[in-house]
Every structure is written in C-alpha cells, then in structure tokens.
C-alpha cells in the first residue's frame, strides 16, 4: 500500500551523557528541558536519572536518551561504561564555582582519550541568574571550549534561559556526525549491499563464507 511512498525520514537514536560535578544543575537542566520544570528544592519525578525527548529537526526525527551519571569520585573509573557509544556529552559547570569548571576540563580530557572525535561535546555554564557571584569568566570558558572543539552555552535552569538551544545545537551536530559516519561507511564498502528501490535482493550466504568484519 505504501510501496510507492518515499522511505520515511531516518530516525536517529542519540545517546547523550551528562557529566559534571555534583550540584552544578545537571538534573535541573534536563528536567527543565524535558518537562519544563524547575524545583528549588531538588525534589521531582521518580525517574530523574534517565529521560528521553523526541524532536524533529528539518526532516530528521531525533530521539534523545539523556543519561545522568553518578558524579562521586569513587565511581570515576566507571565513566567509560557510561559514556561508551554515546553520541554526545553535556559537560556542565556552575558559573559561580571555578572548581566545577576545572572538573569539566578533566572530563573533556578523558572523553577525548576514550572516544576521540566521534563524540560531540557541549560545555554549559549554568546558573546565569547568579551573575553577581560569577567566578568563571565567559571569555575563559569560551576560549577553552573552542580549543577542544566543543560548543559553549550559558544557561539558567531556574529562569529557563538558553536550555532549549543547548539540546537543539547538540542534536544538529550529532546528526551531522552521523551523516559523516554513514558516508564513510558507505565509502569503505560501496558494494556491500544494494538498496535499489523495488528490488529485493535475497542473497544466500554459504556457511563457508568469510564473516564480514563490522565496526566495533
């Protein structure tokens, strides 16, 4: 019935990890974004550690899975298990707390080491409503972000400033990256499969056929 329809736009499932020191507002940011809620008192929905959001950018549909991570030092070694296979990372610091900014730098180093350039990084200075108590200058942060190929945003989860943009920009970059990876894959194995319209190619694989090596 829908045989003549154009193949539906690809749906991207993106995994985004949230990293940053405790109390910088990671949970608040996501709750603001996903549920448009802000709790002064840190109490909210049952599930605050894992949230999803669907959005459409152009003709692309994106499903974001946003993973909160345990921030304690003792769990630091588990980082790689959490951010394995993620498409994006949001590294948050509190603009009133320089320490939290230094922590962001550590995370960036680690992510780069483990995942290279496959992962899209966004650095966020949160709590801009506390401008008067600012301890991390915008220039420093922006310069640093640029030097590591990350985008930098300033937000206030409390006043809902700049939150939407963070996720929109990150999604756009993840789509670009996915397209790039797709193109690379296709270039590597141009004849690996036929997707010619209408034709159903049924290939019998013999037991002796060498196993194709996929990317891991």
């Amino acid at each position: 019935m829908a045989a003549s329809a154009v193949a539906s736009p690809r749906v991207h499932d993106f995994k985004v990890v949230l990293l940053g020191e405790g109390c910088v507002g990671k949970t608040s940011l996501v709750l603001r974004y996903v549920e448009n809620k802000f709790n002064e008192k840190h109490e909210s929905t049952l599930q605050a550690s894992f949230l999803t959001k669907k959005l459409t950018i152009g003709n692309r549909r994106v499903n974001l899975s946003i993973w909160d991570t345990a921030g304690q030092e003792r769990f630091h070694a588990l980082g790689p298990i959490y951010y394995r296979d993620s498409n994006g990372a949001i590294l948050t610091y509190d603009i009133t707390d320089d320490d939290s900014f230094q922590k962001v730098k550590n995370w960036v180093k680690e992510l780069k080491k483990m995942l290279g350039t496959d992962i899209m990084l966004t650095i966020i200075g949160n709590k801009t409503d506390l401008e008067k108590q600012r301890n991390v200058s915008v220039e420093t942060a922006e310069q640093y972000a640029e030097s590591v190929g990350a985008t930098h945003f300033q937000t206030s989860a409390k006043l809902n400033r700049g939150v939407e943009e963070v996720f929109l920009d990150l999604s756009r970059r993840m789509i670009e990256q996915a397209d790039k990876q797709d193109a690379e894959k296709r270039a590597l194995s141009p004849s690996s499969r036929s997707t010619a319209a209408g034709n159903v190619v049924l290939l019998e694989e013999t037991p002796a056929a060498p196993i194709k090596s996929g990317c891991c």
């Binding site: 019935m1 829908a2 045989a3 329809a5 154009v6 193949a7 539906s8 690809r10 749906v11 549909r61 499969r193 997707t195 319209a197 209408g198 159903v200 196993i211 194709k212 090596s213 996929g214 891991c216």
Partner: peptide
C-alpha cells in the same frame, strides 16, 4: 558476536532504508 552484530546492522538498515518497508512506522 560478529554474526549477530552484522545481522542487526544490516537488517535495521534494510528496515529503515529499503523501499519495501517504507510503510512501516518506527
């Protein structure tokens, strides 16, 4: 693992890109 992995990759690719499955929703 590779056999299974390749299958998932190719099969999901097929489901999303091949004309035959255009009518299927997510």
């Amino acid at each position: 693992t590779k056999i299974a992995g390749n299958f998932y990759e190719e099969f999901s690719d097929r489901l999303t890109r091949n004309e035959l499955f255009a009518g299927l929703d997510e």
